[in-house]
Simulated assay, not measured.
Amino acid sequence: MDGTRLTTVETVHENRSWLFTVRDQYGEPDEAILVPCEEGVEAWINRCTHEAQRLDTGRGVAMRDGQLICPKHGSMFDSCSGYCDNGEAADTTLPAVDVTVEDGVVYLTDDGFSFASEGEIDDEDEDDGPSSTSHIGF
């Protein structure tokens, strides 16, 4: 299988979601989530299309009846299509991340992303801007 092994379909279904960090083509980190979808899984960028609110804040995605729930405004996204038909994010679709399942194992196969780590973005990966040696505090 071409691609990076992420986890198993069983793990995603048992935990309701699986959070991981990817890097885009410029090396910038972003979060993605695997969520159960009928018999398989789908992967989405981990943020609501309305206000870039994280859907999984590190404790799993809130879901009801096969829909991901935005914790800020309650918009609900279909876990299989990523489409939202209600709330502040109505008529939008979550950005997809391509994955492939083979023998119950999920692989990242999206040419636009590389796997960085399991879980949320590591604070060490974040660029806090230039370091300063100034004696003035803000």
Rank of each mutant, 00 (worst) to 15 (best):
D110A: 05
G104S: 08
A96P: 04
D110R: 02
L94F: 08
L94Y: 01
G87F: 15
V105M: 11
G87A: 14
V101F: 05
V106H: 07
V99Y: 10
N86G: 10
S79C: 15
D78G: 11
N86V: 13
A96D: 07
A89I: 11
Y107T: 02
V105L: 06
L94P: 11
V101W: 04
D103V: 02
Y107E: 06
V105F: 04
T93R: 15
D78H: 12
Y107W: 14
N86Y: 08
C84S: 14
T109K: 04
N86Q: 15
G87S: 14
D103E: 12
G82V: 12
G82E: 09
A96F: 02
G87C: 13
E88C: 12
V105S: 06
T92K: 07
N86W: 04
G104C: 08
N86F: 10
G87R: 12
A90F: 01
L108V: 05
D98I: 05
G82M: 05
G87L: 13
D78C: 13
Y83C: 09
L108E: 01
D103I: 00
C80Q: 15
N86R: 11
A96I: 02
V99C: 06
T109L: 01
T100H: 09
E102N: 08
D110F: 05
G104H: 07
Y107Q: 03
E102G: 01
C80D: 12
T92F: 04
S79V: 13
V105C: 06
L108W: 07
Y83S: 10
T92H: 06
D98P: 00
V97G: 03
D110V: 01
D103T: 03
V105I: 11
A96L: 03
L94A: 06
E88Y: 13
V106D: 11
S79M: 03
E102P: 00
Y83H: 11
T92S: 13
T109C: 04
E102M: 03
A90S: 07
A89V: 10
E88P: 12
G82Q: 13
L94N: 03
V106Q: 06
D110E: 01
G87M: 11
T93Y: 04
Y83F: 13
T100A: 14
L94H: 02
L94E: 01
E88A: 15
A90E: 14
S79Y: 00
T100D: 10
G82R: 11
D103H: 10
D91A: 05
P95H: 04
E102S: 10
L108I: 03
V101A: 08
C84W: 05
C80Y: 07
C80I: 10
P95K: 04
T100G: 05
Y107K: 00
P95R: 07
P95S: 10
L94I: 01
S79T: 15
G104D: 11
Y83G: 03
S79G: 06
V97I: 13
Y107G: 04
Y83N: 10
C84T: 07
Y83R: 14
V97M: 05
C84A: 14
T109H: 03
N86D: 15
